[in-house]
Simulated assay, not measured.
Amino acid sequence: MSVQPVHHQSDPEPRVPRTADGIAAVLTGARRMEFYRELGQAEIGEVEGVLLRWWCEAMLDTDPEQDRIIQAARSGTLPTGTMDDVFRRRRERGGEMPGE
């Protein structure tokens, strides 16, 4: 079996809006409550990190390939890269960088 590259769409509207309400809308039950608890207890400088982490969780929860991604992570076959690689690709696509 070969690994296929993941092609990300440059769709301007992600599956999960990058807002607290957008994140909460796709989380269910206890996960939604945990999100609100973490968000409510975060200090001002931590709020962005909490939102980003839970947005990533919500994106994975709604990914149509979620089962394949989880299986690849568990088996050690999920392609990995450095944050420098991620930031470089994001810049190349015209994306905004954290803190900019």
Results as ranks from 00 to 15, higher is better:
85 D>P: 01
73 A>S: 13
72 A>C: 08
92 E>T: 00
22 G>I: 09
41 Q>C: 10
71 Q>M: 10
24 A>S: 14
85 D>W: 07
80 T>K: 12
85 D>I: 00
36 Y>R: 10
81 G>E: 15
38 E>A: 10
76 G>H: 11
14 P>F: 12
70 I>L: 15
22 G>Y: 12
83 M>H: 02
5 P>A: 02
41 Q>L: 14
65 E>S: 15
80 T>A: 11
62 T>L: 10
58 A>F: 11
9 Q>V: 08
99 G>W: 12
70 I>A: 08
17 P>S: 14
23 I>D: 08
2 S>E: 11
62 T>M: 15
31 R>C: 00
85 D>G: 06
83 M>Y: 03
82 T>S: 15
56 C>G: 14
61 D>Y: 04
24 A>Q: 08
72 A>D: 06
33 M>A: 14
77 T>E: 14
94 G>E: 03
8 H>I: 07
90 R>Y: 04
11 D>R: 02
12 P>D: 03
68 R>H: 04
6 V>A: 11
58 A>V: 05
31 R>S: 13
72 A>Y: 04
55 W>P: 07
8 H>C: 02
51 L>M: 09
90 R>Q: 07
44 I>M: 08
52 L>M: 09
27 L>E: 11
13 E>M: 08
1 M>Q: 07
20 A>E: 09
10 S>P: 02
91 R>Q: 15
95 G>D: 12
50 V>M: 08
75 S>R: 00
43 E>I: 04
68 R>Y: 01
18 R>G: 04
87 F>L: 15
4 Q>T: 09
2 S>D: 03
53 R>T: 11
2 S>A: 08
38 E>N: 13
79 P>V: 06
80 T>V: 08
24 A>F: 10
68 R>L: 12
10 S>E: 09
94 G>P: 05
89 R>A: 13
45 G>C: 05
81 G>K: 06
71 Q>R: 14
27 L>G: 03
83 M>F: 11
69 I>N: 05
39 L>Q: 09
89 R>F: 03
86 V>S: 00
11 D>F: 00
69 I>E: 01
45 G>Y: 14
4 Q>R: 14
84 D>M: 09
57 E>Q: 07
59 M>C: 15
85 D>K: 03
61 D>C: 12
43 E>D: 03
